[in-house]
Simulated scan of single mutants.
Amino acid sequence: MTVGNGAGGTGGRGVDWAGVRERVTALRKAPRAGEVFGARQYGFGRGYGHDFRLRAPLTEAEVTEAEEEFGVRFPADYRGFLLRVGAGGAGPSYGVFPLCRDERGWHWLDGEARSDHAFLTEPFPSAEQQARWTAEVDAREPVEADFPDEASHLAAYRAWNAEYERVYDLRTAGAVRLSNQGCGYYHWLVVTGPERGTVWEDLRAGDGGIEPLTLPGGGARTSFGEWYLDWLTASTREACEARGR
């Protein structure tokens, strides 16, 4: 996927969020709003999708409290989004996961599931490091023929699987899961490490990797603000243009 102008891991360039909330919510009344992917989808006898609705913005005190709880500082453009546009809601694919607080503390909400941010303060691994980790753990998968019986093989496999799951989670260390694209694909925003401020696409559900969103032709990384505003521009065009144009 290619979008916008790159951020280059700098934490995201300044974005003017003035009027963006109003532009997004106005699309609910656009003539072709239902044709924008993720806005009004239907399945299993019910409707779902973001419907161009946004949660209320957070206050400076709330954002600061969340950052202190997580032990990170959000990239500037994501921080501005939370303060000026909304805590989550309408956005690329099925929307931006909202940042919420309950009796257990701050978290991002994917449907009814709370985020697991245990590794948020760890640096986001490079693509090369991710590939090396994966190859190493794959190479250690127990082969049944190497064990004297099924029980010993099963015990070894369970230990290996626990290591595999840990490496799986570490591949998105230092990143916030932003949105669900459907079919198990996600977008992530890096908040810790050299790639801070850039958006990555998680294609592991289809046996792919975790890849940065870049400019056409493999250019610079894209930031949260560019990712979001590119979606808004494309959605406005799709929702508002007359058919046949």
Rank of each mutant, 00 (worst) to 15 (best):
127 A>M: 12
235 S>D: 02
163 E>H: 01
177 R>T: 15
180 N>T: 09
72 V>M: 09
177 R>I: 12
14 G>A: 10
53 R>A: 12
197 G>W: 06
232 L>G: 00
224 F>H: 00
187 H>Q: 03
144 E>L: 12
7 A>R: 06
3 V>A: 13
72 V>L: 11
85 V>E: 03
14 G>M: 03
203 L>P: 00
225 G>S: 02
63 V>T: 07
174 G>F: 11
117 H>I: 05
178 L>Y: 09
162 A>D: 13
113 A>M: 07
62 E>C: 11
11 G>R: 04
92 P>S: 02
144 E>V: 11
240 C>A: 00
57 P>V: 04
198 T>D: 15
217 G>S: 04
142 P>Q: 10
90 A>W: 01
217 G>K: 02
162 A>Y: 00
60 E>H: 14
99 L>W: 05
127 A>D: 10
24 V>F: 07
176 V>N: 07
43 G>D: 13
52 F>A: 04
105 G>K: 06
110 D>S: 15
175 A>K: 08
188 W>T: 02
120 L>V: 13
64 T>R: 14
125 P>R: 08
49 G>P: 01
59 T>W: 10
68 E>R: 15
140 R>S: 13
107 H>P: 06
58 L>D: 06
219 G>L: 00
196 R>M: 12
244 G>K: 05
239 A>K: 01
70 F>A: 09
150 E>M: 08
23 R>G: 02
42 Y>C: 14
93 S>L: 13
181 Q>R: 15
116 D>W: 01
146 D>Q: 02
168 Y>I: 02
212 P>N: 04
241 E>W: 04
88 G>D: 02
52 F>K: 01
103 E>R: 10
234 A>Y: 00
143 V>Q: 14
228 Y>L: 06
159 A>F: 06
3 V>Y: 09
144 E>H: 08
164 Y>M: 15
39 A>D: 05
113 A>I: 09
53 R>W: 07
207 D>R: 10
216 P>T: 00
107 H>W: 07
92 P>A: 08
178 L>H: 08
46 R>I: 06
16 D>I: 10
21 R>V: 05
150 E>H: 10
56 A>T: 12
30 A>P: 11
83 L>A: 09
244 G>R: 04
59 T>A: 08
161 N>Q: 15
